[in-house]
Structures are given as C-alpha cells and as structure tokens.
C-alpha cells in the first residue's frame, strides 16, 4: 500500500471522522477533531488494509498566537505496509484530548511527556503524572513562553 492509497482508504472509510487529509514531505497527514480521535485511531489500527499497529511518537507543537494553541501530533507506523502516518489534533490551552493508551499501550509514557512539557491533559490516562520534571514543578518547559534559562523559584 503506498502513500496515496492510504489517503484514499481513509477518505473512503472514515472521511466523516477527519477534518482534512494531505501528503506531507515524509508521510500522509490527517487532521482529526478531538471528539473523533479515539474512533479514528481505532480505525487506523483495526482496519485490515491499513493496520497502523506500532506507535512511533506522540508529541505536541505550541503555536502561542493561534487558537487552539497546541497541535498534538501522533506518528504511527504500519509494520505490514512499511508506511507511517501523521495524525494532528488541535487542542486549546488548558484543554486536553482522550488518551490513546486504550489503542496502543506504548502511548502511556509519550503522553505523560506531552502533559509534562506542554500541559496538555489526556483524559482516561492510566497514570497521568509528570515524567521528566519533578512532581512539584509548576511550569511546562516546552511551551514557547517558558524562557530557555528557566524560571527561578
């Protein structure tokens, strides 16, 4: 299955769940509304032709001037097809998305890191705590308004 076929398959089977599809430089890209995230992710994993079974990465990008402020970005790999897909979910400041740990267990720590670094909440996460920073740290260091040299307590 090549990159165009992935997009075609998604448009054919799950177009109601997506907000837009495109071809990136490296892989197909899908924008999903946070309400449909779990349903769409389950489709990606369970659809036999697509079978995106290996979660590569969960991260976020901060766009302070934009509303909603964050993009939570998922990279998922299909071992069967040798293809990767990027799923993007826009999330507002102080808001969150459903955790995808019910689809891929491996997302657990990746989501904790996003929570720690950006302050994006993941609902129904089994163990949502800070992971790299200390428990009582008040800020989210990878936000663009956090200074590089840190904040003195």
């Amino acid at each position: 299955m090549n990159r165009q076929e992935i997009i075609d398959r998604i448009q054919e089977k799950a177009s109601s769940l997506t907000m837009g599809t495109s071809q990136g430089i490296d892989c197909p890209e899908v924008v999903v509304d946070k309400q449909h995230l779990i349903e769409f992710m389950k489709f990606l994993k369970e659809d036999e032709a697509l079978s995106f079974d290996l979660i590569s990465d969960v991260t976020a990008v901060d766009y302070p001037a934009r509303t909603p402020r964050f993009d939570v970005v998922y990279h998922i790999f299909s071992i069967k097809n040798g293809q990767r897909i990027r799923v993007r979910v826009p999330v507002g400041d102080g808001d969150g998305v459903e955790s995808v740990t019910c689809v891929w267990r491996g997302a657990e720590w990746l989501e904790r890191e996003v929570y720690d670094m950006f302050g994006v909440t993941f609902y129904n996460h089994p163990d949502l705590r800070r992971i790299l920073m200390e428990e009582d740290f008040k800020y989210h260091p990878l936000r663009k308004d956090f200074p590089l040299e840190g904040i003195e307590e």
Binding site: D57, T59, V61, D62, H75, E108, W109, L110, E113
Partner: peptide, 14 residues
C-alpha cells in the same frame, strides 16, 4: 521551530 526526538530507549523502558 520544534525539534522532537523520539527515543526508543524511552519507549522500551516504559
């Protein structure tokens, strides 16, 4: 603008 490093050690340790 953003440089994310996906580390296999991090995921394998989880």
């Amino acid at each position: 603008y953003r440089m994310r490093i996906k580390s296999s050690c991090f995921v394998n340790l989880s």
